[in-house]
Simulated scan of single mutants.
Amino acid sequence: MDQKNILIVDDHPEIREILRVLLRSGGYHVIEAVNGTEALELLNQSIDLVILDIMMPGISGLKTCEKIREDYNVPILFLTAKTQDSDKSMGLLMGGDDYLAKPFSHSELTARVKALLRRYHEYKGKDTVERDHYLRIADMQINKDFNEVFLNGEEINLTEIEYQILRLMVSYPRKIFSTQMLYESVWNEPYFYTSNGTVMVHIRKLRLKLEDDPQNPKRIVTVWGKGYHIG
């Protein structure tokens, strides 16, 4: 198996050292950046995962994430000392895939990294695909093998998490998915009540990209008290 490349972005050298030691012990190749500007210069298609601190001088982690999302779908794991739900939601809204609060354990870091890398490479796929590899519903086409989505013939740029949620729901268009079902299926982790916010943020992001009027969604419909389904 090819060695995975992980870009660490943190202005604290001791945090970078901890991450470097833990990740290298897991067999990963580590690249380091001290701020968002350097991270954007180092980022390329060979990077498999970005671990990004939110609070940094200069370009913040949130702004760095936003700029990364202009060109890349690489998974982003936010590393932050902040634990309020509003801070976590903001990170996810800006394009992050997951977050890890400081201080963190070796096992928790390893589990998050493995899950993000597994999802990314499982759905990353190949450069070309035949048209019968698509799921179709109304005006949407979703590639069944990797992250490629078209709406009215125009390609839509989704993160891997957004793609997996959409692909799952389109695969079962008559099924109502609760937040628990979505979280356990897509994140492949045990569901807790606090996971609701994570799912809701990604549904909101999907609606912003797919709906003509995100305030009155017709493609991803809420069934109050039950969950969501494809309209």
Rank of each mutant, 00 (worst) to 15 (best):
Leu77Ala: 06
Asn35Lys: 06
Met56Arg: 12
Val74Pro: 04
Tyr134Cys: 14
Val199Tyr: 08
Met55Asn: 10
Val201Pro: 03
Val50Phe: 13
Tyr120Asn: 06
Lys124Phe: 13
Arg207Met: 08
Glu14Val: 14
Ala115Arg: 12
Leu62Ala: 06
Leu40Glu: 09
Pro173Gln: 01
Ser60Phe: 15
Gly197Ile: 00
Arg69Val: 04
Pro57Arg: 14
Glu184Val: 14
Ala33Cys: 04
Lys144Asn: 11
His202Tyr: 02
Asp11Cys: 05
Lys67Met: 04
Gly125Trp: 03
Gly231Asp: 09
Lys218Cys: 11
Ile176Ala: 03
Gln141Arg: 03
Lys63Val: 02
Leu62His: 11
Leu49Phe: 03
Asn157His: 01
Ile76Asn: 09
Glu38Leu: 08
Glu160Arg: 08
Glu148Asp: 06
Leu158Glu: 06
Thr80Lys: 12
Ala39Tyr: 01
Leu100Tyr: 14
Glu160Phe: 08
Tyr163Arg: 13
Leu158Ile: 02
Tyr193Thr: 14
Ala33Ser: 02
Gln141Asn: 08
Lys124Trp: 12
Asn5Arg: 07
Phe146Asn: 15
Ile165Cys: 05
Glu66Lys: 00
Asp132Arg: 08
Pro75Leu: 04
Ile31His: 15
Glu32Lys: 04
Glu41His: 10
Cys65Glu: 09
Gly125Tyr: 10
Ser178Tyr: 07
Asp71Lys: 06
Pro103Cys: 12
Ile142Trp: 00
Arg69Phe: 03
Val9Trp: 07
Thr110Met: 09
Ile31Arg: 08
Ile15Trp: 05
Glu155Trp: 09
Lys205Thr: 00
Met181Ser: 08
Arg69Cys: 03
His121Leu: 07
Ser107Arg: 15
Leu92Ile: 00
Gly61Met: 02
Arg24His: 12
Ser107Asn: 14
Lys144Leu: 11
Arg219His: 14
Ile203Tyr: 07
Val170Thr: 14
Ile8Met: 05
Arg20Thr: 08
Thr110Phe: 03
Gln45Ser: 12
Phe177Asp: 05
Ile59Arg: 04
Asp85Ser: 14
Tyr191Ile: 13
Ser25Arg: 15
Thr110Cys: 14
Leu79Thr: 00
Val50Arg: 03
His29Thr: 08
Met169Asp: 05
Met90Ala: 05
Leu23His: 01
Leu43Gly: 01
Gln45Leu: 07
Arg16Gly: 01
Glu184Asn: 09
Leu79Asp: 00
Leu117Asn: 02
Tyr163Trp: 09
Cys65Ser: 11
Val21Tyr: 07
Leu92Cys: 07
Glu162Asn: 14
Asp71Ser: 09
Asn196Trp: 02
Asp98Gln: 13
Lys226Arg: 13
Glu14Phe: 14
Val170Arg: 03
Gln45Pro: 04
Tyr228Thr: 11
Met94Ile: 05
Glu66Val: 04
Glu189Asp: 12
Asp97Phe: 11
Met90Glu: 02
Glu154Leu: 11
Ile68Met: 05
Tyr193Leu: 04
Glu148Val: 10
Leu22Ser: 07
Leu7Phe: 05
Leu62Arg: 06
Gln141Lys: 09
Arg16Asp: 00
Gly26Asn: 12
Ile6Met: 13
Arg207Trp: 13
Phe78His: 10
Ser171Lys: 05
Gln45Ala: 08
Lys67Phe: 11
Glu70Pro: 06
Lys144Phe: 02
Tyr28Trp: 10
Asn143Pro: 10
Asp85Met: 11
Glu160Asp: 14
Gln164Tyr: 11
Arg119Thr: 08
Ser105Gln: 13
Leu168Gly: 03
